[in-house]
């Protein structure tokens, strides 16, 4: 099962990004192999539709869970349609590593 965590940097120690569509990086974490892959978000600077594009990208990666700070209405609808679980974390000071540790314990 794959999980996407929005991240502000390209490694596990980077701060978790609370934005979804305009997050700097997407960290794809595979629960079976415990591997993480970092994918750059190309929609960071787009003026509109960033959430939709990010959601499309996530659906095409065959991910079952997305962890972020918030989701826009369009992204919510789209992720919901493809049965992707959305998880909202309100914490400001949490790293990608911290979330992965919580997920695996």
């Amino acid at each position: 099962m794959k999980t996407v965590i929005t991240s502000s940097g390209e490694n596990n120690l980077a701060q978790f990004d609370k934005r979804f569509g305009r997050a700097a990086w997407f960290c794809v974490f595979d629960e079976e192999t415990k591997e993480t892959i970092f994918i750059k978000n190309t929609n960071t600077n787009s003026s509109n539709g960033a959430g939709t594009k990010a959601a499309e990208q996530i659906v095409s990666m065959n991910v079952q869970k997305v962890i972020s700070g918030d989701f826009g209405p369009k992204a919510k609808d789209l992720l919901d349609k493809f049965n992707v679980q959305m998880v909202i974390i309100q914490d400001n000071d949490v790293t990608v590593q911290g979330i992965i540790e919580k997920l695996t314990t």
Binding site: I67, N83, Q85, M86, V87, I88, Q90, I99, K102
Partner: peptide, 19 residues
Amino acid sequence: CQTRFTIPKTIEEHQCPLC
């Protein structure tokens, strides 16, 4: 842990995805 989340139809367990 105050996490908010959805449970899509494909998931059967009703538990927090994080903790």
